[in-house]
Structures are given as structure tokens and as C-alpha cells.
Design a protein around this nucleic acid. Structure first.
Lengths: 149, 149
DNA sequence: CAATGTAGTCAACTGGGTTGTCTAACCTTA
DNA sequence: TAAGGTTAGACAACCCAGTTGACTACATTG
């Protein structure tokens, strides 16, 4: 029997591949998972590059590269930080929010397909089970999001 | 609510980090996940470098690098292919099997910990659910194992 | 106001992957 | 059984997303 992480990795890749296929049919910029996770992170709150790096589990330099790309492509913009002159807030543009909506729809489709294949209750169990484990391992402070290979 | 792949990635990383921490305490060669997956793949059957690459979801050249490392460290050895003079079988050495046993024990510990945290039945649901999804998406031919980030 | 810490940027480097190319051996198929 | 296409493995060049390290400007703490 495979260890659980093997199943996690395979499923992650399988879903990611399907997502990416559909996205490519639409013909957008070559957005990687990291970009998507940044969108999601910026959905409600604005954040600095350092915040984003921590959320992704990478250095601030790596986060800065990603933010630069998103900026060039018009998905985010930078605004001055109200109190800290060193810092900049990164915020989603309209284009960024449009993308996020599109991506959410794609994910919803994929999850519906998954629910159909394995049963909605099983999918729910996976969701809540994984979330519970993560809460157990790291309390409230989120872990790195990036699956280090 | 986070899309399922986000949960998969975070859990994968969380478990992987814990595994790696414990492994490092023992003080082994710097084995990466890919190495572990090769061990697992070679557990029963011998395989060629090309086979290994396909299993991991990387090119044969990338697989060759990994096999070379494992060879240098004494975890695997190469033996001539019985019928194909171009090819070589890669097989686990005793050291390789020892490592695999050790790793399996570590994984079992981590999964027991997980079962305690979220309930054994939930863990079982995750296992069977993910396996069922993978069977649904790719029939019998396994997908790439590596979580492309 | 001094000492220490932090956001962001620039530069150099790393390493695990890729593509491309080649040789030797394999597998048709006629 | 020779010819044409395919495949395993090796070698080399390159890619690129990440890293470490150093630095400036500003913030915070004492």
C-alpha cells in the first residue's frame, strides 16, 4: 500500500494537469500554481511581498519575482503602504479578480467531477480530514503552501 | 474554502517535512522524495532507467541522474538486461532495502499520528477516495508521480 | 538617539529539471 | 537478410525557479 503522501502527490498532479489543460484552451498568460495561490491570498486582504513569500513558503526574493510578473501582466498593482514607507501593498486588479473567478469555476468543475467519481461524502471527508490534520500539525499559523519535491 | 489541490499540496508538504526531519536526525545521505519513490518502484520488480523516468513523470535523463546518485551511494546496482543489450536493469541492494524498511516505518508512524488526529476512518476514506479518483482519471496506467509546481 | 530589525532590490549562484544529439542495439517487414 | 524506423542510454548545453548574500532605506525598541 502506498504511503499517503504518494497519493497526495499523484492526486495533486492529476488535478493540476487537468486544470492546466483547460486553462490553456482559453489561452492565458503562462500562469503557474504559485500565481494562482497569490491571487487567492490577495482575494480579501492586501499584502506585502514578504507576506506573500511566507504564505507560499519561499523567500521574499522568489516572491518578488512572482509579484513582478503578475504586475507586468496587469493582474496586480502596487500601492504605497499607509504607515511603512519601505513597504508596498500588493492588490488584485480587475483582471486579477476576473482570473480568480474563472479559476474558481474551473476548480468547482473539477471537484464536481471528483465528487461524481468518488462520492460527495468521500470528497467532504477528504476536505475536512486534511484540513483537520493541518490544523493539528501547525496550529493557526499556516505552513508553506508549496509542495517541495 | 480552499480548492482541494491546495489542501493536497499543504498536507503533502507538511507530512514530507515531518518525514524529512526525522530522517535527518538519523543522518543519512540527502535523499529526496524522488529517491524514495524509486526505492518503492524497485521494491518488487527490477526496472530500466526509462521505466523509472516514466514512473516519476520526468525525462529519462533526469531519471538517469537520480539512478546514478543511488548507485554511487550503494542503494542500487545495475545488472545487464537478459535480452536487450542496450538496456540495464536497476535493482535495490541490501542497503536499499534497509532504507526502504526504515522509511516505511517512519511513514507508518506519521500515518498513525495522522489517524489519531483525524480518526482512523477518515484516514481510510482519504486513502480510498484518492485512490479511486486516480483510478477514475487515469485507468490502470499510472500518472506522473511528481507534483509539478 | 543609538542599536537592532525589517522591506525591498540587485547580483551571483544552485540544482533539478529540459531539449537536442549521438551510438549501439532492437524490431519490423518485405 | 538487408533496410528503415525505433529505443536505451550517455553526453552536453541550457533553462529557470528557486537560493544565499549584500546593501539601502526606513522602523522599532531601549
Amino acid at each position: 500500500m502506498d504511503p499517503v503522501p504518494v497519493l497526495l502527490a499523484m492526486t495533486y498532479r492529476a488535478m493540476g494537469d487537468r486544470f492546466h489543460d483547460r486553462l490553456r484552451q482559453i489561452g492565458l498568460e503562462p500562469l503557474r500554481p504559485a500565481h494562482g495561490y497569490v491571487f487567492r491570498f490577495l482575494k480579501e486582504k492586501r499584502a506585502t511581498t514578504v507576506d506573500i513569500g511566507q504564505h507560499l513558503g519561499v523567500t521574499k526574493q522568489a516572491a518578488a519575482k512572482i509579484v513582478n510578473e503578475l504586475d507586468e501582466w496587469g493582474y496586480v498593482l502596487r500601492e504605497p503602504h499607509p504607515t511603512d514607507k519601505r513597504a508596498q501593498y500588493v492588490a488584485l486588479t480587475g483582471k486579477g479578480r476576473d482570473y480568480l473567478r474563472l479559476a474558481d469555476n474551473l476548480w468547482a468543475d473539477l471537484e464536481a467531477e471528483m465528487a461524481e467519481a468518488i462520492g460527495a461524502d468521500t470528497l467532504t471527508a477528504i476536505r475536512t480530514g486534511l484540513a483537520a490534520y493541518l490544523r493539528h500539525v501547525h496550529g493557526e499559523d499556516q505552513p508553506g503552501l508549496r509542495p517541495v519535491w
